[in-house]
Design a protein around this nucleic acid. Structure first.
Lengths: 130, 130
DNA sequence: AACGCTGTGTAATAATATAACATATTTAAG
DNA sequence: CTTAAATATGTTATATTATTACACAGCGTT
């Protein structure tokens, strides 16, 4: 509840837009939409996106190169994300499953790696598309 | 042990290259390397990559836009992949963890989605980079 | 006032990926 | 054994995604 206030102008504009969409937005579609607000160049969009990802306000759907707002207030830092993706309609939903999170958080491999982050994407068909 | 034989010329060339590398390769670096073998255009590379992904011979590391050979002979279809990625040296390792796989395979969300595929990427620092 | 940090604006360009078209090769069916 | 369907090839052009490089502005600290 403190970082929210310190967002810059461009960051606010872009976060607003993403939060209004319940589906992931692509960087250049964001750029198109915010041109009327005076944001003219890809880099302005990417800079804001990178910051918003870093502070956990949005997540990147890696397999789709798209960005979605984080609805979970606890999710201050983008370190543990799980999504379901419908391969037909491309609907994306963020998943918060306690048991699954526990398992992923506690996962240890045999390489001695220290994990600070993970991203999991499930693919399939949603109810409408089955 | 049957699909191996039916790979086309370009597919074989590109699979060979990827299998010789223990780390993920990017499409345009592959293109550069196979130019001496008569593959001249990005599309020729992407077509082969897509096919190899589809039959499970290679996997795409989504967060890196790179492709790595699948070392697991059982992994005939690219439907369940787990990787660890070092954020410092970019070393990537495919993980096969029975308990984890079980959990992911059995995961059910409350949206009634039918999953046929997932991709999980863990990020952190490998032993060398800690 | 000088510094470090974060952000802005702009132009250029790099890196990743696909569309569209013409043709060839392989496979399976009649 | 030939026709049709499916898969693969080669090429050109272009779309999409993302970063480099440079100049400067605002703000809080020391």
């Amino acid at each position: 509840m403190q970082k929210q206030e310190t967002l810059s102008k461009n960051q606010k504009i872009i976060l607003d837009l993403i939060e209004k969409s319940d589906q992931p937005l692509k960087a250049y579609s964001i750029l198109f939409d915010v041109k009327k607000k005076g944001i003219n160049a890809p880099l302005q969009v990417y800079r804001a996106l990178n910051k918003l990802v870093k502070i956990g306000k949005i997540h990147k759907i890696e397999s789709r190169n798209a960005f979605i707002a984080c609805k979970n207030s606890k999710c201050q830092i983008a370190k543990a994300t799980v999504f379901s993706i419908c391969e037909s309609c491309e609907d994306v939903t963020e998943i918060h499953d306690h048991k699954l999170s526990e398992h992923l958080r506690d996962f240890k491999d045999n390489k001695g790696m220290k994990y600070n982050k993970y991203n999991l994407e499930f693919f399939g068909l949603c109810k409408k598309c089955v």
